[in-house]
Amino acid sequence: MASRKIGYSRPLHAGESLDAELESLASADVLNVVVEPSPRSGSALAALIAGCESGDTVVVSSLDRLADQVGAMVAILVELADRGIVLDCLSLPDARTADPTVVTVLRELDAASRRLRSRRTRHGMQTSGNRPGRPPALSPEQVAVAAELRRFDRSYAHIARVLGVSTSAVQRALAR
C-alpha cells in the first residue's frame, strides 16, 4: 500500500477558527485532514494514529496542535516514530520524526522540562516555608498543650477529645 499524507488539526481554545490551519495544510498538498472537535478531545488523533501504517506521514502546522502539554506531545511523537509514522511539522521544515536524533532530543527536552519544574517547585516551597503533604492537624500551641496533658498521664484519646482532633493526629504530633 502506498504511503499516505494525512493532516491533523485541533483548536487550541473553544471557538477558534481553524480556517488558517486548514489552508496551511492544503498548501502543503495534504488532501485528507482530520480535525479534532474540541481543544481537549484527542479522540480524533488517537483514531488517526491507530489507522496509520509505517511509512505514512502525519502533517501538522505546529507541534502545539498535537497536545497542550510537552509530555503528552513527546509521547505522541515517540509513538509515531516507533511505529514508523513520519510527522511533518510545517513550522519546523527541517525536522522530521523519522530521524532518531529528533526523537532523542525531544525525549531529553521533556525530561529536562520535568527536572526544571521539579527544581522550581522545591525551591519555591523552601523559600515560602511550605512543605509537601497535608498540613499538620495540630498547631504548635496545640502540640504544646498535648505534650503538657501527656505529662499528666492523660490518654491520647482524652487529649484528642480536648483538642478536637483524632487520636492518631495527637500520636503523630507528639512523636515528632
Rank of each mutant, 00 (worst) to 15 (best):
E79H: 06
A75T: 04
L66V: 00
A50R: 11
F152E: 15
D29A: 08
T101D: 11
T121L: 12
S118I: 05
E148L: 08
S43Q: 14
L12N: 04
R119H: 10
G164Y: 06
S128W: 06
H123A: 15
V103R: 13
R131Q: 10
Q171N: 12
G164I: 05
A98L: 11
I85F: 07
R96A: 12
E108L: 15
R151D: 09
R107T: 08
S3Q: 15
G133T: 01
G7S: 03
C89R: 04
D88A: 10
S3T: 15
A173D: 02
P140D: 00
R122A: 14
A2P: 10
I76F: 00
D56V: 09
D94Y: 06
R172L: 07
V145G: 02
P132H: 02
L92R: 12
R176Q: 10
L106Y: 11
L90D: 03
I76E: 00
R134E: 01
A146F: 02
R122Q: 14
M125H: 07
T101N: 14
V70F: 09
I159T: 08
R4M: 12
A175T: 11
R107Q: 13
A160N: 02
R114Q: 12
S24Q: 15
H13P: 00
A20V: 12
A147R: 15
D94N: 10
G133E: 01
T97M: 11
T167Y: 02
L77K: 09
T104A: 15
R96C: 12
S43I: 11
S3C: 14
S62C: 08
S155F: 04
S91R: 11
S43L: 13
P93W: 03
D82S: 09
L90C: 05
S9Y: 04
C89D: 13
A144D: 06
P136I: 01
A175L: 11
E79T: 12
L63A: 08
L18H: 06
I76W: 00
L48F: 00
L12M: 12
L22H: 07
S41V: 09
P136F: 01
V58A: 05
D153H: 14
V35L: 04
L80I: 07
D19K: 11
D110I: 04
A157L: 08
S38D: 14
P136D: 03
L66Y: 00
G55H: 09
D110Y: 12
V86N: 13
D110L: 06
A26N: 02
L22K: 15
L22C: 07
S17A: 12
R176D: 10
R150C: 05
V162W: 03
L149W: 07
C52E: 02
V34C: 04
L174C: 06
S43T: 14
S3H: 14
G124L: 06
